[in-house]
């Protein structure tokens, strides 16, 4: 690579980074504006909007509600997804490709369509709109991501690991819990955090399947309809910071565990 291309490449990179980060920076900045409306110029600054976020009981309740939905739907997706991944990675059997295809389908169906389908299905099954309906739809949507991540990890597990355990007297169940599961831990942490973020972020499914209590994205949407105020910016910034911290923590701990387990 010549010097010119290198400079050009780094310019393009920084331009792209700026393009991505500028709106986020603006959003954070507006949360400090001491006025009811968003926009420049900012004549005076305040922390009131941020303090308001933590003082607002509805926002705090909704935050907890969304977190609970994220945790429960992720737990279900992890169990089901790992189960499917392990089944599909074992011996070849008839219909394996079909099962894999069906498993991955929820990831590619447009959100609105799957949300409507869930709504209809929930009515047929008699599931009330509300927390469990949302958890159910999030879990189904997240299973494909768990399957993909866990299968990728599983494909790097040497066959001799399970064989050595069998050789030393373990039956298949013991092999799974004492050898396979520990090996999959980093993949499951990664997939889990990703699922939690997907669930926390989801608007369409939560909107269509929600009951009286809104999830955080639905609440923000409702607030936006009554006009853009710096309050929304403050809420969004808090969410952004928390999710970024969670994401970075997951990435780091995944790398640490993998390093241990890879030799």
């Amino acid at each position: 690579m010549t010097r010119h291309t290198r400079i050009l490449m780094s310019c393009i990179y920084w331009a792209f980074a700026l393009y991505l980060l500028l709106p986020l920076a603006l959003m954070m900045l507006m949360g400090f504006k001491d006025a009811r409306f968003i926009g420049f110029p900012i004549t005076s600054w305040t922390l009131d909007w941020y303090i308001g976020v933590f003082a607002d009981r509805q926002v705090m309740f909704t935050f907890g509600y969304s977190t609970l939905i994220a945790i429960l739907s992720t737990a279900i997706a992890l169990v089901v997804g790992t189960w499917i991944a392990v089944t599909l990675t074992g011996r070849a059997f008839f219909g394996r490709a079909v099962i894999l295809g069906l498993t991955l389908l929820p990831a590619v169906i447009p959100g609105v369509i799957s949300a409507i389908a869930f709504r209809i299905y929930a009515r047929v099954l008699g599931i009330e709109p509300g927390m469990w309906a949302i958890i159910w739809s999030h879990a189904v949507h997240n299973v494909p991501f768990v399957v993909l991540v866990v299968m990728a990890r599983l494909s790097t597990l040497p066959r001799s690991q399970a064989e050595a355990a069998r050789d030393l007297g373990a039956d298949p169940l013991v092999v799974f819990f004492r050898i396979t599961m520990p090996y999959l831990t980093p993949a499951m942490i990664g997939a889990g955090v990703f699922c939690m973020l997907l669930s926390f972020d989801d608007f369409v499914r939560s909107y269509f399947l929600g009951g009286y209590d809104p999830t955080l994205p639905v609440l923000i949407f409702a607030k936006l309809r009554s006009g853009m105020s710096p309050e929304v910016n403050a809420i969004s910034t808090v969410v952004l910071v928390l999710t970024a911290v969670l994401g970075i923590w997951a990435e780091r701990s995944m790398r640490r565990i993998k390093k241990q387990a890879n030799r």
């Binding site: 040497p158 001799s160 690991q161 064989e163 050595a164 355990a165 069998r166 050789d167 030393l168 007297g169 373990a170 039956d171 004492r178 050898i179 520990p182 090996y183 241990q260 387990a261 890879n262 030799r263």
Partner: peptide, 20 residues
């Protein structure tokens, strides 16, 4: 009989030590 019910043990080529 499956491997876990045979009284023979194996040393694998890659040792297959449990990394964790």
């Amino acid at each position: 009989l499956p491997p876990n019910r045979r009284k023979v043990n194996m040393v694998f080529q890659d040792y297959a030590l449990f990394p964790h």
